[in-house]
Design a protein around this nucleic acid. Structure first.
Lengths: 212, 212
DNA sequence: CATTGACTCGAATAGCCGTTCTACTCTTGA
DNA sequence: TCAAGAGTAGAACGGCTATTCGAGTCAATG
């Protein structure tokens, strides 16, 4: 749906989103202009109409601060489904978001829907949302999203506890029926990547298609 | 901190909260006046200054729509701690809130912090937040907050799965080491009350005092 | 009765807001 | 070179906004 945006308009949208998050209300055209170093209010109006035409915002004509975001400002994107068991491709979800807040920075976080039972002993179930903080490193015992790189590009991903051992990395499921994945250090460094670690989980009961 | 509010100002604050939730921006004084059937904008300003003096809102002088709520609009209150094991008094938490959204109606929902392991087989852990939808009835198998009434007033509460059986109600923990609570139908009707059922859980990792 | 305090209205004001218009400067491509 | 399009500035306009002021009502209190 949304067309890609130029650098300038992308920064302008970013300012609007941050302003709303900070102030609890949308900015006026003049406030936008001041922040973006635009001298003319008409000029701001021009860019806003661009953002509107491309589906990023909706405006209410003539109303002061009449800007609405088409995506929920507090949501973080649900980027797809991840296997807790065997690594699978992260299957992308259509533009879904989940609201979290509570200290979660939406810029550096995203969510995945868990498939499978392999983290069940850590009480992460099929259908749960895991909230991931993007980071390239982690500590022993963290639950992480680990991605296998195939010729440098991300391939299959899995959700596991991370343990750095003498000669290898151990990706440990939380299910007695499943074996850990052992990866030699050099292969780990060459072919694997940490995408982030789990900072929260959210489970909905009774909703459509959720775990009971 | 907040002084109690008269009926009129309470409804006015409620309108403002709902307007923000609906429109994504605070209302203008005139919009408030129209909704509250107040003819004069000065009159609206008067009541707004009352709300501000009593700590319910903060205003930014001269700014259009310059109203901020002092409590987070999307949060639902964390009302206390509930035992998943033996019934305990619901221990009240200080004005904490947790952000949920995602279709959860803040008017009819609240959250509790879980203590104990008795719902562990349903993968609800010590330290998890359970989001409760207020309702007096429930269906078999729902996870509910059940309260024992002592002379009509709420006493101890517990978190269990609810099953209505022939001659009794069974409150079933999800922990093989614990026994269900059986309550005869007439005692149930006289002395117990459903406060609501679990519609979601939220778990934070790595934060202060959370379950690892 | 007189007073006080809470609440209400109507009008006025100064400034803010979104929008529109004209004119100008670039860059791109035919 | 010429035309088209995107981006910029400045000014102007009509409407909207928050705030203030003066005056009035009503109930409770002394």
């Amino acid at each position: 749906m949304p067309e890609p945006l130029g650098e300038f308009q992308r920064r302008m949208l970013e300012f609007i989103v941050n302003y709303i998050r900070r102030e609890g209300m949308p900015p006026t055209n003049r406030e936008i202009g001041k922040a973006m170093k635009i001298a003319s209010t008409g000029h701001v109006d021009y860019h806003l109409s661009m953002l509107e035409k491309r589906g990023y915002i909706v405006r209410e004509a003539k109303k002061s601060r009449g800007i609405k975001l088409t995506r929920h400002p507090w949501g973080i994107p649900v980027e797809g489904t991840i296997a807790a068991g065997e690594p699978i491709e992260i299957f992308s979800e259509p533009d879904q978001t989940i609201e979290v807040g509570h200290g979660v920075d939406p810029e550096s976080s995203f969510a995945l829907v868990v498939r499978g039972q392999s983290m069940i002993e850590d009480h992460i179930c099929d259908g749960d949302y895991v909230v991931i903080k993007r980071q390239r490193t982690c500590e022993n015992g963290d639950i992480v999203v680990a991605v296998h790189l195939v010729e440098g590009i991300p391939g299959k991903a899995t959700l596991k506890r991370f343990f750095l051992e003498k000669e290898q990395v151990r990706l440990q499921p939380a299910n007695a029926e499943l074996e850990p994945i052992y990866i030699p250090r050099d292969e780990w460094d060459r072919e694997w990547e940490i995408q982030g670690k789990v900072i929260a989980i959210v489970r909905h009961y009774g909703g459509p298609g959720r775990a009971a």
